[in-house]
Design a protein around this nucleic acid. Sequence first.
DNA 1: CGCTTTGTTTGATATTTATCAAGCGCAAAC
DNA 2: GTTTGCGCTTGATAAATATCAAACAAAGCG
Lengths: 231, 231
Amino acid sequence: MRADDVAEFRHLPLFRTMGDQAFESLIRGAYLQTFPPAVDLIREGDVPDFFHVLIEGGVELYAQWHDRETTMSTLGPLATFILAATVVDKPYLMSARTLSRSRIALIPSEDVRRVVADDRSFADEIVAELASGYRDCVRREKNLKLRSSVERLANYLIRLHEAAEGDEFSLPHEKRLIASWLGMTPENLSRAFASLRAYGVQVDGAQVRIAEIEDLRWLAKPTPWIDDPKS
Amino acid sequence: MRADDVAEFRHLPLFRTMGDQAFESLIRGAYLQTFPPAVDLIREGDVPDFFHVLIEGGVELYAQWHDRETTMSTLGPLATFILAATVVDKPYLMSARTLSRSRIALIPSEDVRRVVADDRSFADEIVAELASGYRDCVRREKNLKLRSSVERLANYLIRLHEAAEGDEFSLPHEKRLIASWLGMTPENLSRAFASLRAYGVQVDGAQVRIAEIEDLRWLAKPTPWIDDPKS
DNA sequence: CGCTTTGTTTGATATTTATCAAGCGCAAAC
DNA sequence: GTTTGCGCTTGATAAATATCAAACAAAGCG
């Protein structure tokens, strides 16, 4: 790993507070690798060999059961993945593939477990990271069980709208991916978009314009306990 | 807290390995309380004041959104709950109510956070507990997104069958609760049971007999990465 | 550039799931 | 013992969602 990679690494939230010695021993076996798009990184059922930190690019976590597949999350820069499998040393429950060209840091699982045991401050960060991962998952489950597909889409658009500057933004992923993440078929996502036209949502390709956010909010009824990842 | 309660407490997996001093400071503010059935313990959106450990009885975790409600998990003795909210000090994402008369240990959240920071071995247990909670949640999400309601019921019955001695067992909860947990209406659960008759499932009230486990497995296609909580 | 592939949309249809309504059965309460 | 309430079941119907098929559009490739 190059010296400036190490420096960048040291500034990530997860590694910022830990002791120098622990950081050293964590980084020693780590390496940084660049992957092209659509590469399978890990496979459901495999035993965790490396803890992953996404530095640059995008990654999809997905799960399979027989001939069905569904995307569980999409990750952006600075996200970590398969932490839970790493710390308990049990098989992955999800697979991961790159969405775009990605730089990913790989840290041997054994090192992570050792340093969690040795460095208190790192353990604290791990606890926080696990807890928010868990809470995200609970939110997704509530979203699925309590809302219809149109409601899920409406809330998703509101989140994107809030992150954007004005009333117009572009979808961050292919629609088929968004559909799978929201738990519906691509055909149904199309129809869901169509039915949101009545609530001031205009779609042209990946471009979305929210003409009447209040109408959309009336339908979506967002709540922080499902939709606000910071709460 | 009575002396024998303290002793019992000390033997729980979560508290067995920690140092005496840490245990002392954790137990000082803790107390044990008995609740009648159907009592609301915590409410979604509230700020965590106590970490909960269920000693005896049963607890339902559920979530609401407007006029809809769904049960997220059912807990039995030795389960802990709302750990994630406690350690990150953010509002609960779920509500909890007792299912039956329950003895519950309550530990002030602040104490938990302090001891996590002070006692390494307790922190390790917390990490393990959080990680398995997270993995359970991922399993539930996969179950929901990848399977139909009949398939979910079939796999649920197989799990109960494996836990039981012979081919007959009784359902651990009311059917309406099971329905909500499996993500369907009570009416639909009835119909799902009816359609499993063709696969050797005989139901009489809460009594279930699996006449042809192989037929049921053929339909359910269980996989450890969804159905085995130990994997 | 034209070609091919892949993603998206739309329509028709089937399947799954929910809702509404009624009746049954068991258990607690009087 | 009767009554009452509640959970459960069943049937009829409606709504939500998936599947299949076709057409189209956009993106990548030789």
